[in-house]
């Protein structure tokens, strides 16, 4: 299926690894140019050089704090070397299990253990980043009367989890979904679609950290913890980052122009709502 993304310019935050890297890969394969924004320079260098080999001249990377509007503005400036931005994927991580692997973010916690500052930190990571990216690319999208905003959110936006120390995402993720839902309604007349992906069962570094945490918590092996989690998934397997990226590419495409204001689970069937 021809997605019609040839020549489009995209920004992907959290683009150096995992889900963000897979999304950048999918958009490049469809002919778009992509700016990767993330914090760690060494991850960015590795990602950029791998992607640039496959798609010479269509990849750029910047180490930027995407929770800060000035960091977002730098990423947008870099994208302008390719042209006006048409696609922006907000993919900043929230709370972290293992800071050494996952980067900045408040610690996982329950209502009892979390401080007010943790909520603000989570809000900054998830909501401010999504808001700032949308605001920074809006002039380009309005000028083109064409745009695609996608937020990589979590299934807890609709169905809060009770089995994990998730008070922060349980609280902030629904707010971000609401933010993008309102933008969808406001921006539809400008040819801009705005959607959220809801997930939590994609095979990334972060989910591996979860298995280790769960194994320690329950006194089991990591392998046992992994099968506890996959048994909860109707598909009985974790999803590949490329499977989530394919859905984002379809939403970003010409074919997906009528799909906006949606929160779409990519989770192998964990979601229970109708």
């Amino acid at each position: 299926m021809e997605l019609g993304l040839d020549g489009r310019v995209a920004i992907v935050s959290g683009g150096s690894r995992g889900i963000g890297f897979a999304i950048a890969t999918a958009l490049l394969a469809e002919g778009a140019s992509v700016v990767l924004a993330a914090r760690r320079q060494e991850d960015l260098d590795r990602a950029r050089s791998a992607l640039d080999t496959a798609h010479p001249g269509r990849v750029a990377a910047i180490s930027a704090d995407m929770t800060d509007p000035s960091g977002v503005a730098e990423a947008v400036d870099l994208a302008h070397a390719f042209g006006p931005v048409g696609i922006a994927v907000s993919n900043v991580i929230g709370h972290v299990i293992d800071k050494s692997k996952e980067g900045d973010g408040p610690p996982a916690g329950t209502f009892v253990t979390s401080e007010l500052s943790d909520y603000r930190h989570e809000f900054s990571q998830l909501a401010v980043s999504a808001w700032a990216l949308a605001g920074a690319v809006l002039p380009d999208m309005r000028a083109q009367q064409w745009g695609r905003l996608v937020n990589i959110g979590s299934g807890v936006a609709r169905e809060p989890t009770k089995d994990l120390p998730h008070v922060l995402p349980n609280t902030v993720r629904p707010a971000v979904a609401g933010l993008y839902r309102v933008l969808a309604r406001r921006l539809a007349p400008d040819g801009i679609t705005v959607n959220s992906i809801l997930t939590g069962s994609i095979l990334t570094e972060r989910n591996r950290s979860y298995w280790e945490w769960l194994a320690q918590e329950r006194g089991t092996t990591v392998e046992q913890a992994r099968s506890v989690m996959t048994d909860m998934i109707p598909a009985r397997r974790m999803g590949e980052p490329a499977e989530l990226a394919a859905v984002v590419a379809f939403l970003a495409s010409e074919r997906g122009r009528a799909i906006t204001g949606q929160s779409i689970p990519v989770d192998g069937g964990i979601n229970r709502h109708l």
């Binding site: 299926m1 490329a242 074919r255 949606q262 979601n271």
Partner: peptide, 24 residues
């Protein structure tokens, strides 16, 4: 086109979802 995407190989991890084409 949305039907075709849901039937596709790359959409294999979508389960029990709705794709609404309502332009918000």
């Amino acid at each position: 086109e949305a039907v075709a995407f849901l039937m596709s190989e790359p959409a294999g991890y979508l389960q029990g979802v709705t794709l609404a084409l309502d332009g918000a």
